[in-house]
Design a protein around this nucleic acid. Sequence first.
DNA 1: CCAAATTCAATCGTGCGCAATTTAAATGCG
DNA 2: CGCATTTAAATTGCGCACGATTGAATTTGG
Lengths: 166, 166
Amino acid sequence: MTDTATDDFTLLLDDQLCFSLYAASRAVTQLYRPLLEPLGLTYPQYLVLLVLWERGALPVRELGEALRLDYGTLSPLLKRLEGSGLVRRVRRAEDERSVRIELTDAGDALRERAMGIPARIGDAMGLTAEQHEQVQGLLAGLTERVAARAAELAGRRGDRSGPTRQ
Amino acid sequence: MTDTATDDFTLLLDDQLCFSLYAASRAVTQLYRPLLEPLGLTYPQYLVLLVLWERGALPVRELGEALRLDYGTLSPLLKRLEGSGLVRRVRRAEDERSVRIELTDAGDALRERAMGIPARIGDAMGLTAEQHEQVQGLLAGLTERVAARAAELAGRRGDRSGPTRQ
DNA sequence: CCAAATTCAATCGTGCGCAATTTAAATGCG
DNA sequence: CGCATTTAAATTGCGCACGATTGAATTTGG
């Protein structure tokens, strides 16, 4: 057995890092809610716009890879963003299977109004720069390892990346 | 301005701790899925059982406080757990408004089969004991601060705890 | 004691997440 | 070329999350 964690694993709720993650993630989402509500966005919709603001128009598949979300989540979400007039869904000529997601002018303009949000979130989190980086680094590694293990167990259903691993 | 984090707040996805949290939480839930599927449980249902195994029968309200989940989530979830024969919902005589959630024998027995799960999750996370505690500690503080701020902004809608704060 | 306020829980509506299935377009291969 | 395979996206179904509303039981205050 490796040197992972406490080595006495219990079924106590507060021992479980998973619950800390789950609780933290939901708390942050709830903080976003009142900040995004004036923009008419949900948190996942905001994440989609972050990617589009950063990288420009993208096919749905690449959006999904960036956010680790599948079509089952993205398709209806993008339809709602289109309904809000923030993105266009354009069937590409080179490959008629593929749909490119483009920002409309309104979607592009929304970026201005979102500029202040990261600072407000960061402020509420109340971590120092070192803590922020530390947590982010540990979570990045954790996510990668956990996703790899999940892919093994699930029999390679969501084979997003990573080799067969034995 | 306080000493929170990087001080150059951007709209870049990978700068955002919130996304690391969101991605990590979903990855962990996906790892639980194949482990819980043989027990016929979802991850939130498993969390409810953790609390009941630890603390015994509880009114719905206290379950919700422990997990930070509201009735809108818990009521249907508990109805499904009752349908699976793992818990009973007992209207209390002293206070007819309150419903006590009790484990059935089957729910109690399931504890045995769940004993191995925390170790499997901990192993996949691949953190040392120090890292584990560090992340957990930082997330606990973060969650508390973020929830407090969210409660302020939302105008005290979900006034779960904590004073008015100015 | 009784009306107003509070509390516990359920329900409803919306929007994720995700597995599984379906459809259509593109690619590969004999 | 022709047909099987692969790929992009949408759809379906289920189970959360959560705000808002509702209803019933209890508590509070006059």
